[in-house]
Protein backbone atom coordinates (compact mmCIF):
# COMPACT_ATOMS: atom_id res chain seq x y z
CA UNK A 1 0.00 0.00 0.00
CA UNK A 2 2.77 2.38 0.95
CA UNK A 3 4.78 1.47 -2.14
CA UNK A 4 1.68 2.17 -4.22
CA UNK A 5 1.40 5.64 -2.75
CA UNK A 6 5.05 6.31 -3.40
CA UNK A 7 4.66 5.14 -7.00
CA UNK A 8 1.71 7.45 -7.48
CA UNK A 9 3.54 10.37 -5.98
CA UNK A 10 6.55 9.78 -8.19
CA UNK A 11 4.32 9.46 -11.24
CA UNK A 12 2.48 12.67 -10.43
CA UNK A 13 5.69 14.56 -9.74
CA UNK A 14 7.09 13.24 -13.00
CA UNK A 15 4.03 14.50 -14.87
CA UNK A 16 4.46 17.88 -13.24
CA UNK A 17 8.14 17.99 -14.15
CA UNK A 18 7.31 17.00 -17.71
CA UNK A 19 4.73 19.74 -18.06
CA UNK A 20 7.17 22.38 -16.82
CA UNK A 21 9.92 21.04 -19.04
CA UNK A 22 7.63 21.21 -22.04
CA UNK A 23 6.38 24.69 -21.21
CA UNK A 24 9.98 25.83 -20.90
CA UNK A 25 10.35 25.22 -24.62
CA UNK A 26 7.88 28.04 -25.21
CA UNK A 27 10.07 31.01 -26.00
CA UNK A 28 9.96 33.64 -23.31
CA UNK A 29 11.95 36.38 -24.97
CA UNK A 30 10.58 36.07 -28.47
CA UNK A 31 8.82 38.90 -30.18
CA UNK A 32 8.85 41.66 -27.59
CA UNK A 33 11.59 44.14 -28.23
CA UNK A 34 12.03 47.87 -28.25
CA UNK A 35 10.95 48.21 -31.87
CA UNK A 36 7.65 49.89 -31.16
CA UNK A 37 7.27 51.17 -27.65
CA UNK A 38 4.53 53.80 -27.89
CA UNK A 39 4.25 54.65 -24.23
CA UNK A 40 7.98 55.02 -23.76
CA UNK A 41 8.30 57.21 -26.81
CA UNK A 42 5.44 59.45 -25.73
CA UNK A 43 6.76 59.90 -22.25
CA UNK A 44 9.92 61.31 -23.79
CA UNK A 45 8.05 64.00 -25.63
CA UNK A 46 6.67 66.92 -23.68
CA UNK A 47 5.65 70.51 -24.18
CA UNK A 48 6.54 71.55 -20.68
CA UNK A 49 9.62 73.55 -21.57
CA UNK A 50 8.28 74.53 -24.93
CA UNK A 51 6.76 77.97 -24.34
CA UNK A 52 9.35 78.88 -21.75
CA UNK A 53 12.15 80.91 -23.31
CA UNK A 54 15.23 79.11 -22.15
CA UNK A 55 18.40 80.73 -23.47
CA UNK A 56 21.07 78.89 -21.64
CA UNK A 57 23.78 79.56 -24.18
CA UNK A 58 23.75 83.35 -24.16
CA UNK A 59 26.52 84.18 -21.71
CA UNK A 60 28.41 81.00 -21.56
CA UNK A 61 31.84 81.45 -19.97
CA UNK A 62 34.81 80.53 -22.13
CA UNK A 63 35.87 76.94 -21.96
CA UNK A 64 38.81 76.17 -19.70
CA UNK A 65 41.94 75.19 -21.60
CA UNK A 66 42.84 71.55 -21.53
CA UNK A 67 45.86 70.73 -19.38
CA UNK A 68 49.23 70.96 -21.10
CA UNK A 69 51.30 67.97 -21.99
CA UNK A 70 50.46 64.43 -22.79
CA UNK A 71 47.50 62.91 -21.03
CA UNK A 72 48.33 59.89 -18.89
CA UNK A 73 48.18 56.52 -20.54
CA UNK A 74 44.71 55.04 -20.54
CA UNK A 75 44.13 52.06 -18.32
CA UNK A 76 43.80 48.85 -20.24
CA UNK A 77 40.18 47.82 -20.58
CA UNK A 78 39.35 44.35 -19.32
CA UNK A 79 38.12 43.18 -22.69
CA UNK A 80 41.07 42.52 -24.96
CA UNK A 81 41.28 42.43 -28.72
CA UNK A 82 40.33 39.11 -30.24
CA UNK A 83 43.33 37.21 -31.64
CA UNK A 84 44.10 37.55 -35.31
CA UNK A 85 42.20 35.21 -37.54
CA UNK A 86 43.93 31.94 -38.17
CA UNK A 87 45.05 31.36 -41.72
CA UNK A 88 42.65 29.28 -43.70
CA UNK A 89 43.99 25.80 -44.35
CA UNK A 90 43.38 25.98 -48.05
CA UNK A 91 46.30 27.63 -49.76
CA UNK A 92 45.92 30.15 -52.49
CA UNK A 93 46.36 28.79 -55.99
CA UNK A 94 49.68 29.88 -57.53
CA UNK A 95 49.67 33.00 -59.60
CA UNK A 96 49.23 32.39 -63.27
CA UNK A 97 52.59 32.41 -65.10
CA UNK A 98 53.25 32.96 -68.70
CA UNK A 99 53.93 29.78 -70.63
CA UNK A 100 57.55 28.74 -70.47
CA UNK A 101 58.04 28.32 -74.17
CA UNK A 102 57.06 31.61 -75.53
CA UNK A 103 57.18 31.59 -79.25
CA UNK A 104 60.04 33.72 -80.43
CA UNK A 105 59.20 36.78 -82.40
CA UNK A 106 59.25 36.27 -86.04
CA UNK A 107 62.57 37.03 -87.64
CA UNK A 108 62.48 40.13 -89.71
CA UNK A 109 62.82 39.75 -93.33
Amino acid sequence: MTSNRIKRAIFALGLGAASFTLSACDGVTVGVGYGYDPFYDSMLWNDYYHDVDVDIDVDRPPRPRPPEGKPPARPKPPVGKPPARPRPPTARPPAARPPIHRPAPRPRR
Binding site: V28, T29, V32, D37, F39, Y40, L44, W45, N46, Y49
Partner: peptide, 18 residues
Protein backbone atom coordinates in the same frame (compact mmCIF):
# COMPACT_ATOMS: atom_id res chain seq x y z
CA UNK B 1 13.93 69.94 -26.32
CA UNK B 2 15.86 68.52 -23.44
CA UNK B 3 14.47 65.27 -22.14
CA UNK B 4 15.28 63.75 -18.80
CA UNK B 5 15.98 60.07 -18.41
CA UNK B 6 12.86 58.01 -18.95
CA UNK B 7 12.93 54.50 -17.53
CA UNK B 8 10.36 52.08 -18.81
CA UNK B 9 9.53 48.66 -17.45
CA UNK B 10 7.18 46.05 -18.85
CA UNK B 11 6.66 42.32 -18.66
CA UNK B 12 8.91 40.43 -21.02
CA UNK B 13 6.04 38.55 -22.61
CA UNK B 14 3.26 41.11 -22.48
CA UNK B 15 2.88 44.42 -24.27
CA UNK B 16 -0.35 45.36 -22.52
CA UNK B 17 1.31 46.60 -19.35
CA UNK B 18 3.81 49.42 -19.11
Amino acid sequence: RGVARVMGIKPVTDDNVW
